[in-house]
């Protein structure tokens, strides 16, 4: 797996798309820092970008990469290595190349701006961790979709729909549920529902850490009320890690039974 990972990363960090993604984060962070000058405000602005954009880009990259490397994967499958190591190697190579773009694109300008001297270092850290986790989760889901669908158009469509579902539709449905059942105590339901959406979970995590109750939204407030900040952050982080494991496990199951 390590070897496949290494060469996948080699290939991807030199791809035009990765460089473009890196350039985008660099530019955005520099502009935000230059205009606002307040590290804490810049982190909040970047949070919104990371929560929506990282999953979207990871989804697109994941599905594109999986389809583009289809023929080469056949060559790898004919080598004396187990299937799981091929697909996990490719998946982590993809996730890490995306993560590097985020780390360097956001981290670079912050470092230059004197991050270590400010008190925001942990908030910055949480922002990066969330960017990385979301990239892994959504590229994994996209990889899985591509693996299960031979038809590329269908695969692309499903992948984008998955992103749309978690980024937009899920919250809408949740809100609708809250409105319909507003007579009942809904906190436990809202709490458990938010565990099933990695984007919601990330939002809660970052808001708990930043401790901005005004921006917390319904689920965030519930989370804090019920669990307190420390426990809330631990649970959110733990479940997010589970979300990373889920596509990895599913990729293994699907790959084991697939004909190439």
């Amino acid at each position: 797996m390590k070897k496949i990972f290494k060469y996948t990363l080699y290939d991807l960090i030199r791809s035009r798309w990765t460089l473009f993604y890196l350039g985008f984060f660099l530019l955005l962070t520099i502009v935000l820092l230059a205009f606002s000058g307040d590290v804490s405000k810049v982190i909040i602005s970047l949070m919104n970008v990371v929560l929506i954009l990282c999953p979207l880009i990871a989804t697109m990259f994941g599905v594109m990469y999986a389809y583009n490397s289809r023929e080469f994967t056949e060559l790898l499958l004919a080598q004396p290595i187990p299937r799981t190591s091929i697909f996990w190697g490719q998946y982590f190579g993809l996730g890490v190349s995306l993560s590097l773009s985020i780390l360097i694109g956001i981290g670079g300008p912050f470092l230059f701006y004197g991050l270590f001297a400010s008190s925001e270092i942990w908030n910055f850290f949480i922002l990066i961790v969330i960017g990385v986790l979301l990239s892994l989760i959504f590229s994994g889901l996209a990889f899985l979709i591509a693996l299960r669908n031979e038809n590329r158009i269908k695969g692309f469509g499903l992948a984008i729909l998955t992103w749309l579902f978690f980024a937009v539709i899920y919250d809408g449905l949740m809100l609708l549920l809250m409105v319909i059942f507003r007579e009942y105590p809904l906190e436990p339901l809202a709490l458990s529902l938010s565990l099933f959406n990695p984007i919601d979970l990330s939002r809660i995590l970052i808001l708990l850490k930043l401790d901005i109750s005004a921006l917390m939204g319904y689920t965030g407030a519930v989370f804090q009320k019920f669990l307190g900040t420390g426990l809330g952050i631990s649970i959110a982080l733990f479940v997010l890690l589970g979300w990373v494991g889920l596509p990895a496990f599913a990729i293994r199951q699907v790959a084991a039974r697939k004909d190439f």
Binding site: Y7, Y10, D11, R14, S15, N68, R70, E71, A78, Q79
Partner: peptide, 18 residues
Amino acid sequence: YRNRIDYLPQIARFPENL
């Protein structure tokens, strides 16, 4: 056992940036 077999796939497509 696959290290006892050499295989030439039908379509030659490789990672583009390597």
